[in-house]
Amino acid sequence: MNETIGISLIVIGLVFDFLGCLGLVRFPDVYTRLQASAKCVTLGTCGILFGLFLFKGFSATGMKALLCLAFILLTAPVSAHVLARGAYRSGVKPCKDTVIDQYGESINK
């Protein structure tokens, strides 16, 4: 039973991983790519790790999978945020479709 739930979580994780990477290819500029990939790949990998935890139960491997899950959930948004800021400060402009750009106004002031 646990193994079936684990397999289905791993399938969901794989699908989200794939969609995140597809977004990385399809979207027009750095910030939208970052949005798609940072959200989808984080949740996808967390799904795979939770599936591993359901497979192994409360053993050494399962506990390490939980620790890895918490670590990724905490650090992936931080690295996305730092990359977005670094990209903006290094002068990469948002794409043509951007409606409002209040951050650019506040930097150039």
Binding site: D17, S37, L49, A65, A76, A80
Partner: peptide
């Protein structure tokens, strides 16, 4: 950004 995502994918690969 792409290298960051590759790093997270490899964790899933190891799992």
């Amino acid at each position: 950004v792409a290298v960051d995502m590759l790093g997270i994918l490899i964790v899933g690969f190891c799992a």
